[in-house]
Amino acid sequence: MVLRSPQDALYALVSDWPVNGGVHQQRAIDFCRAWLAGRMPAETVRQAFILAALEAGVAVNEEEDGAGASASTPPVKS
């Protein structure tokens, strides 16, 4: 999935996240909501999202042109 804003990140964290209940996941959700309310800078939200991704084992690939980032779960090994 490609994430272009904290709003996209919030959707991913709430709807598509592979692991629920992580400390960093909840913090990133709270930060995304604060951004929507105009109380949090997007860069702070991005950093919180990256920590949540590390916590959940979700790979983050940041685009160098600043257009956004993509996140994906690692493949399942049989």
Rank of each mutant, 00 (worst) to 15 (best):
A52K: 11
V2Y: 01
N20M: 08
D30N: 14
G66P: 01
R39T: 12
P18R: 01
D30K: 14
W17P: 15
R4V: 01
L13Y: 11
G57D: 08
A37K: 13
V19K: 13
N61Q: 12
A56M: 05
A69W: 11
I50D: 03
V2G: 01
G22Y: 06
Q47Y: 06
L54C: 05
V14N: 07
V45F: 02
Y11W: 15
P74K: 09
E63H: 14
E55I: 07
A59D: 12
G38L: 14
F49Q: 01
A52F: 09
V23K: 13
D8E: 07
G68V: 13
D8W: 07
I50G: 02
A34R: 14
M40R: 13
A12C: 08
A37S: 10
A56D: 01
S70Y: 03
S5A: 06
L13H: 09
E43S: 11
V45W: 02
K77P: 12
K77G: 14
L10I: 09
A59G: 08
R27E: 03
E43M: 07
S5D: 05
R4Q: 05
R46L: 08
E43W: 11
D30S: 15
Q47S: 13
F31K: 13
V2P: 00
K77V: 15
A69D: 00
Q25D: 00
F31I: 06
L54R: 15
G57E: 09
Q26N: 13
A9E: 02
R46Y: 04
A53W: 06
V60I: 14
R33I: 00
K77H: 14
I29T: 08
G22D: 07
M1I: 07
P74F: 12
V58D: 00
S72P: 00
P6K: 10
A69Q: 08
V19L: 12
L13D: 13
G57R: 08
R4F: 03
M1F: 11
W17T: 09
W35N: 13
V76D: 08
I29M: 11
A48D: 02
Q25W: 00
S70N: 02
P75L: 09
V14S: 12
V58P: 02
I29Y: 03
L36N: 08
P41N: 04
L51T: 07
D8V: 14
E63P: 01
Y11A: 11
A28C: 09
A67W: 08
G21L: 04
L3C: 10
L10W: 04
D8C: 14
G57H: 07
L3A: 02
L13R: 10
F49R: 04
D30F: 11
G22T: 09
V58E: 00
I29S: 03
P75Y: 06
A34G: 08
A48K: 07
S78W: 12
A59W: 15
A53E: 01
